[in-house]
Each structure stands twice: as C-alpha cells, then as structure tokens.
Amino acid sequence: MSETVVKIENLVKRYKELVALDHLNLEIKKGEIFGLLGPNGSGKTTAINCLLSLLSYDKGDIEIFGEKMTPTSYVLKKRIGVIMQNVAVLEELTVYENIDFFCGLYVNDKVARKKYVQEAIEFTGLEEFVKFYPKKLSGGLLRRLNIACGIAHKPDLIILDEPTVAVDPQSRNKILEGIQKLNSEGATVIYTSHYMEEVEQICTRIAIIDKGHSIAVGTKDELKNMIHNTETIKIEVMELSDEALKRIRELEYVYKTTIENNLLEVYCSGGTHNLMDILNILNDYGTLLGRIYSEQPTLNDVFLEITGKELRDTEGQ
C-alpha cells in the first residue's frame, strides 16, 4: 500500500475568471479505491481532465506511476483506463464493436483483444446485448457499456467520473460491485461522485472537494472522526413541554437541538447510544411519541460541518 500511483501537487486551473481548481493536492496509493467527493461544480471532472492531460492547467505538477504526465505520455496512458462522465460510444457500432474499438486503441494483438473484449462483456453483464446498437440500450446498460469500453484493456489505474449518474439502483449496485472486483484484481481506482452513499460504500479513502480545493482526506471513519457530531437523534413528538426540552439540552453530550413541525432533532457528540436517555426524559413528562430515528454521521455531516452547507441539494438518488 505504499507505492504512489497518482500525485497531484498545487494544481491550479482557471477558466477565464473562474478558478475551477484551487491548489488541489492529492496522493493516491496503489490498490486504493480513492473517492473524490464533491458537490456539482466542485471541480471533480476538471481535476480528472487535467490528470489525463486532456486539459492544460495553469500551475501544478501531476505524476502518474512516478512519471510526469504530459499529453504525449503514451506509455503512461496505455496503463490507464478512463470512464468519463458523459457516455462516449460510437452510435454506428454495436456493443461488441464499440468495446473492440476502444480496447483496440490499447491492445493491437487480435487474439488477446478478443479475449479481453469477451471478459469485459461478461464483467459488465452485456452478453445478451452484444449485437445491440447504443441507441437501443437503456440508460443503465449504456453506462455499463461505457464502463466496458474503458476497462477492457485491463488497466492498472482506472478513473471513473460519476459512472452511475442516472442509473437505476440495480445497475448501480452491479457497477459498484464490479469496481470492487476490478480493485481486488489489482487495479487502483479513482472514483468521483457527488453521492456520498456510493463513496462510503466502496472507497477505501476519500477526498472531499469543494470549490476546487481538497478540504479533507481520509478513510470514511477518519473523516467522520474529524467532526463534532457522533449521533443525530430525531423523534416525532406530539407536544413537547419546555421543561422536557430544557432537560434534554442539559445533557452534557447534546450540543444542539432543533424542533420544527413536531420533529425534535438532537445532535450529540462524544459517542453513540444516547437514545435511551432522551426517551427516558420524554417519558417522564408523558410526551406522546411518533417515529424515532438515530443516525450516525454521514459524509454529508462532515461536509456540512466543514463548509457550512449541504453536500447536495435536495436532489434524490
């Protein structure tokens, strides 16, 4: 776990006035599934494009496999597999032909390529659709084809830029499992997303990005330990006396409470399992209770605490 695969130092990228990347630093080790988590427009795609030398940048250094990455680093490029945010396949080619084409950009030997393409098809579960044209594929299948095109040549480093946007949960799980499988077979993975659940589910290390700057890096537990909050308790209450609320606020681990629309939210720090204490207090005052939730902090809470805003707008998954 010690070899550095990607090293980005002080990367600055401007689009005219807009600073898309602001002294971004990242170090990704061999064997990681490295998550880049950030809201829309935080600069994830820009970072990936700079990393791949698709974009020129204003300042900074990028090394991949210990070598400086430039637009003509063809040897380096051969070791990388890319799945871009936008589906990039040729409409005129079938599923099989598409995978064969993109694989053929890396693998010249026909026999080897045939095997690789077949494996990629099996890997993404596209066996039944090899003769289909992209137009005939559903969104989820199209995403899977997009992935198959990027990984068929068995790269050492796989970069996925939001590969699950607009994908149904079933396809999404298949994709996530696949990424973990590729990783277990030895590939280092960079995975960008604005879905914290996905990132939490598969990433071994995560960088949280905001406004082109990495604001926190670590495993998900490390990230969660960075913040105050350890548990959020939400209880539906019919009528809450001020006395009861006062007693709850007096608990030493409670640092914040809110009540809105009969929903009581209690923010706790320093540990979990605080629910019983609070229920006991409510019971003492004979409060009628509705639904009760106890939530561990999420990466959203981490983001919220560091930046003061939500990771994503109310958009559902």
Partner: peptide, 19 residues
C-alpha cells in the same frame, strides 16, 4: 463527426495512440 465527437475524442486521446 462521429469520430471527432468531443467525448469520443477525449477517449481516443486518453489512449496511447499519438495524435
């Protein structure tokens, strides 16, 4: 246009095929 589509082109540029 098919081959020079921006996304396709990005993909081709990511591979080891020189411009």
């Amino acid at each position: 246009l098919s081959l020079k589509n921006k996304d396709i082109n990005n993909r081709i540029n990511c591979s080891g095929v020189s411009s």
